[in-house]
Measured scan of single mutants.
Amino acid sequence: FKEKSRGVLREWYAHNPYPSPREKRELAEATGLTTTQVSNWFKNRRQRDR
């Protein structure tokens, strides 16, 4: 994950830790990652924050 991608994901996570499938697609396009990578990032981040 590039620093820029992580920044976008972290910013989004601060507002909404549970993005919808459509939001995940938009995030994937914005970061250049796949929707699966975006989903996993959020899942792992939520797990880490428990």
Rank of each mutant, 00 (worst) to 15 (best):
Phe1Met: 05
Phe1Glu: 15
Phe1Gly: 07
Phe1Leu: 07
Lys2Val: 08
Lys2Tyr: 15
Lys2Phe: 11
Lys2Trp: 07
Glu3Trp: 02
Lys4Ile: 07
Lys4His: 13
Lys4Ser: 14
Ser5Cys: 06
Ser5Gln: 13
Ser5Tyr: 09
Arg6Ala: 08
Arg6Leu: 15
Arg6Asp: 14
Val8Ala: 09
Val8Lys: 07
Val8Thr: 11
Val8Ser: 07
Val8Pro: 05
Leu9Ile: 02
Leu9Lys: 00
Leu9Tyr: 08
Leu9Ser: 01
Arg10Cys: 13
Arg10Trp: 12
Arg10Asp: 13
Arg10Gln: 14
Glu11Met: 04
Glu11Phe: 05
Glu11Arg: 05
Tyr13Cys: 04
Tyr13Lys: 00
Tyr13Trp: 04
Ala14Val: 12
Ala14Tyr: 08
Ala14Asn: 08
Ala14Leu: 09
Ala14Glu: 12
His15Leu: 13
His15Glu: 14
His15Gln: 11
Asn16Tyr: 02
Asn16Asp: 06
Asn16Gly: 05
Pro17Asp: 05
Pro17Phe: 02
Pro17Lys: 08
Tyr18Leu: 12
Tyr18Thr: 09
Pro19Ile: 05
Ser20Arg: 03
Ser20Trp: 01
Pro21Lys: 07
Pro21Cys: 10
Pro21Ser: 08
Pro21Asn: 05
Arg22Val: 15
Arg22Ile: 15
Arg22Met: 15
Glu23Gly: 03
Lys24Trp: 08
Lys24Cys: 14
Lys24Val: 14
Arg25Ala: 15
Arg25Val: 15
Arg25Ile: 10
Arg25Phe: 15
Arg25Lys: 06
Arg25Trp: 12
Glu26Leu: 05
Glu26Arg: 02
Glu26Pro: 00
Glu26Ala: 06
Leu27Gln: 00
Leu27Asn: 01
Leu27Ile: 05
Leu27Trp: 02
Leu27Arg: 01
Ala28Ser: 11
Ala28Val: 04
Ala28Gly: 05
Glu29Ile: 09
Glu29Ser: 07
Glu29Pro: 01
Ala30Asn: 13
Ala30Arg: 11
Ala30Asp: 09
Thr31Trp: 05
Thr31Ser: 11
Thr31Leu: 08
Gly32Glu: 13
Gly32Met: 08
Leu33Gly: 02
Leu33Gln: 04
Leu33His: 07
Thr34His: 06
Thr34Ser: 12
Thr34Cys: 08
Thr34Tyr: 04
Thr34Ile: 04
Thr34Pro: 05
Thr35Ala: 13
Thr35Pro: 15
Thr36His: 13
Thr36Val: 08
Gln37Val: 07
Gln37Asp: 06
Gln37Cys: 03
Val38Ile: 10
Val38Glu: 04
Val38Phe: 00
Ser39Trp: 00
Ser39Gln: 06
Ser39Asn: 08
Ser39Gly: 12
Ser39Val: 04
Ser39Ile: 03
Asn40Gln: 06
Trp41Glu: 03
Trp41Phe: 08
Trp41Thr: 01
Trp41Leu: 02
Phe42Gly: 03
Phe42Arg: 02
Phe42Cys: 00
Asn44Lys: 12
Asn44Ile: 05
Asn44Asp: 11
Asn44Phe: 02
Asn44Ser: 08
Asn44Met: 06
Arg45Thr: 15
Arg45Ile: 10
Arg45Ser: 10
Arg45Met: 09
Arg46Val: 09
Arg46Met: 06
Gln47Asn: 15
Arg48Asn: 13
Arg48Val: 10
Arg48Phe: 14
Arg48Trp: 06
Arg48Ser: 11
Asp49Ile: 05
Asp49Tyr: 13
Asp49Leu: 00
Arg50Val: 05
Arg50Leu: 12
